[in-house]
């Protein structure tokens, strides 16, 4: 596939080998190819150590793949850039800045006009439900609110692609469900391409229009699903979707798939 002809995000036959300082190497990714159309939301699942973070870091441009390349809208990814926004699990906010300054960080660095930026920040504050918290230091916010700031900070730059590495992983179950609703809403409103890594099968099913399950050693794509739940989630309540027979069936299918992988890794000890 020729990346230069591709509109959207293309991960083209990417392999990643980490050479360890003490000799030896880890094959973190092997021949991973992915093709995301603009505006797609893809979730990535897999046992820990299967290369999810490595894949995301390569797309973000923090790591150069050993083989293959990543393309976004006709050009090759060579390093981090504002076109690809990141949302980390936690602790990536700038604690010396208040909420407003965190959100406006991107536009300020890019030298965007101040008036436009201020309007955008106010708009985003309202969208993520933090209208009254603009002047608060971020460390005074709860975990869920901090992740909403992280989402808003990413959106303020209007990136083409949003990359999320277990963004809701540190939140309690209830907050997490609410935040899933917010991610879905933002996705629909902004039409962004989103790659979302998660540990939670339920979250991956609920949010992913597409879902890939990765397998470890070497990290590779094991299965891919196209799912209706994200689309439904815009009209039907999340609880209802998650309780529906189709959802439960898929959830069990994927859970047992991951169980099997874990058992392989642990040599049956996981039983």
């Amino acid at each position: 596939m020729d990346g230069a002809d591709h509109n959207g995000l293309l991960v083209d036959d990417v392999s990643m080998v980490f050479t360890l300082p003490g000799g030896g190497s880890v094959h973190a990714l092997k021949n991973v190819t992915l093709n995301l159309a603009s505006g797609e939301l893809m979730s990535v699942l897999g046992p820990s150590g299967c290369g999810k973070t490595t894949l995301l870091n390569i797309i973000a441009g923090f790591l150069a793949p050993t083989e293959g390349a990543v393309f976004l809208n006709h050009h090759q990814v060579k390093g981090p850039a504002a076109e690809r926004g990141m949302v980390f699990q936690q602790g990536a906010l700038f604690e010396w800045l208040n909420v407003r300054k965190n959100i406006s960080f991107g536009p300020r660095m890019m030298g965007k006009p101040r008036k436009e930026t201020n309007e955008k920040v106010e708009h985003l504050l309202n969208i993520v439900g933090l209208g009254d918290f603009g002047d608060k230091p971020v460390y005074q916010l709860s975990g869920g609110m901090q992740q909403r700031v992280a989402l808003a900070r990413c959106l303020a730059n209007d990136p083409d692609v949003i990359l999320m590495d277990e963004p809701l992983g540190a939140l309690d179950a209830l907050t997490r469900e609410k935040m899933q609703g917010l991610v879905l809403k933002l996705w629909k409103e902004t039409g962004k391409t989103i790659v979302l890594i998660t540990h939670s099968v339920e979250e991956a099913l609920f949010l992913g229009e597409r879902l890939i399950v990765m397998a470890p050693r070497p990290g590779r794509i094991h299965r891919e699903y196209h799912l209706p739940f994200a689309e439904q989630g815009l009209t039907i309540s999340p609880r209802e979707i998650k309780a529906s027979p189709e959802f439960v069936e898929k959830r069990e299918e994927i859970l047992s798939m991951i169980w099997e992988m874990e058992e392989e890794i642990m040599g049956g000890a996981a039983k």
Binding site: M86, G91, A92, F94, F105, M109, M110, R153, N157
Partner: peptide
Amino acid sequence: SKVHAAYSLGASKFQVLKNVILPN
């Protein structure tokens, strides 16, 4: 992750130094 976040938000090396590394 803070340095990465700043680069992904479009900051230059000097901006990362001034706005992330220094306050940190």
